[in-house]
Each structure stands twice: as structure tokens, then as C-alpha cells.
Simulated scan of single mutants.
Amino acid sequence: MRPPSPSIPEKEFLYASLKESLRLDGRSLLQQRKLEFRFGPELGYVECKLGKTMVIAQVDAKMVKPTPERPFEGSISIHSEISPMASSEYEAGRAASEEEVMINRMLDKVLRRSDAIDKESLCILAGHRVWHLRITFHFLSDAGNMLDCACLAGIVALRHFRRPEVEVIGDEVIVHPPTERAPVPLAIHHTPFCFTFAFFPDVTTSPVLDPSQLEQRLSAGLLSIALNAQKELCVLQKLGGVPLPHEEIIRLVDTSVQKAKELHEFVETRLTEDWMSRTVEVR
């Protein structure tokens, strides 16, 4: 069963609150929900919570033969699954919804096509062996804005992952287990983050960052901006028919740049804390 549509009183109350620059969860219009990470025992496993929205990302690597067109590059694939436990709107075995398709496409653009990962560094033996990275997403709770949560979980999982050390002797490839040689981090060019803004039918109502489920369902359009802390814009995607002047888009890009800098520092701190805890355990 699909969840019931918001009632008329819910709509009116939300719209009236937003006109007064108030949100139902107490946040300011351009404030994200609380962000939490939990790293798994294996490298490359990350649980990301954005408020009550929860996504798990896991990275695995295996050796494969490269494509004839790109013999010196490894490859990346993205697989996602929205569990029925995330929301009653999703059912196992049912055709992907428009939102699921949009999330998959955006993840592909942000994590694979933005060249965040140096694919040439994944080459082991040119033309014969390269690393193939598989990023798997499990959406466990939908409290709104699953896209931003998934993008964040994916890039942090890539930063957290370590591939096995390999040695090439002639045409022979030797994979060393972690007990013999320390695993190697991925070569990452930049760390993109995604920020989604929701717009509403009344053009006098300001857009909100990181919309809740109710805000997202009652919005008239969404604008997703993917960029890094170095102010490099990766993807800009607009959904919905609300017209936006270019001044408003530039303002939201500037807001996203500042948020990306803050997020980058937070991610670096959490990754360092996790790595230090693992180093202490090894000692």
C-alpha cells in the first residue's frame, strides 16, 4: 500500500510555516539535519544517517579483464536497492519508481562520471588485469532526501575503502593478504557532496535545504547541486516546473560551497578518528 497523501491541513500548515521561515522540525531554512556515520569492521562499509534517513554503502573490489576501449583503466559499477522497510511506498520486486531511477542516475553522475576516482590507478597489468569497484547501496529508512544521504555514504565508503596490495612479476599477479602487506587506499581526485533544495508553489516562499519527507512530497520542484570543497561544480540537476532565476541558482551554489567546506572537514575528522582507532587495535 502506498502511504496516504498529505491532508489539506498538513499542506496548509507546512506552507504557512515556511512563509514565516519556520520548519516543522525546528531547523532554519538552509540547515541540514544531524549527520552521523558508523563504520563497519571491514574497510569500505559505511552507515550514514541524515536525520532519520539511513543509507548503507559498501565497496568491494575484484580483478577483471579491462575493456578493449580502455585497457589502462579500471571500472566502477553502482548497484542500489531500496528496501521495503525504508517506506511502505517501496515494494520488493516492483518496477523502480521515478525517484529510484533519479537517485541511481545521480549517484552514477556524482560518484562515477565526475572522475572522483582515478581509474588509471586501478590498472594492475595493462590490457590484462584491472580492479573493478562495486558500490552497493541499501536504503533502510526514508525520512526525506535519500539522494544526499546516499551520495555522502558512497563517497565516504570510497574514502574508507582499501584495496589489497598487488605485485606483478612478469605476467603473474600476486595479491598479498592484509596480514602480509597493508591494503592501499584508492587514488581520489576530489570528494563531491550533493545538496538538495526543495521549492514550493508560492514563489515568495524561500527554498529549503535537505527537505524532510513531507517537505519533499509537498514541494513543486527540487534542485540538486553536487560539488566539492574546492568550488568545482560536478552536477546540477533540476526536477519540477518551478522557474528559477539565475541569481537564485547562483545563491544556492554559493550556499552549497560553504556547506561542502564544512562537510569536508567533518568527513576528514571522522575518517581520521576511525583510522586511528584501528591503528590502536592493531598495536
Rank of each mutant, 00 (worst) to 15 (best):
Q230C: 15
S121F: 06
S28T: 13
E99H: 10
S83I: 12
E120S: 13
V173G: 08
H246G: 00
Q31K: 10
L263V: 02
G40K: 03
P243C: 07
S219T: 03
T53C: 04
L271Q: 02
A157L: 03
E262T: 10
F139W: 07
F266G: 01
I82P: 04
P9L: 04
M85I: 05
V59T: 06
S80Q: 14
S5A: 11
Q237E: 15
P211F: 09
F72A: 08
T53P: 02
P6H: 09
T179P: 00
L43E: 11
Q213P: 05
Q230A: 15
Y45I: 12
A220I: 07
R94V: 05
S97Q: 09
S75H: 12
E99P: 04
L50I: 09
L218D: 11
L22Y: 06
F200M: 10
N104Q: 14
I250Q: 13
F200E: 11
I225Y: 00
S87W: 03
V267W: 02
H264T: 10
N104D: 15
V55H: 01
E247W: 09
R283V: 14
S114L: 02
H246R: 06
I225S: 02
Q237Y: 13
R181Q: 14
V184F: 02
K259T: 07
A126D: 13
P211R: 09
A198P: 06
V130S: 08
K65E: 12
I250L: 12
S141D: 05
T191A: 00
S206Y: 01
S87L: 02
V203M: 05
E281Y: 08
A116R: 00
V110C: 14
P243I: 06
A226F: 06
G127K: 02
I124V: 08
I174T: 10
G26K: 00
Q31N: 09
D148F: 08
S212W: 04
D202V: 04
A96D: 05
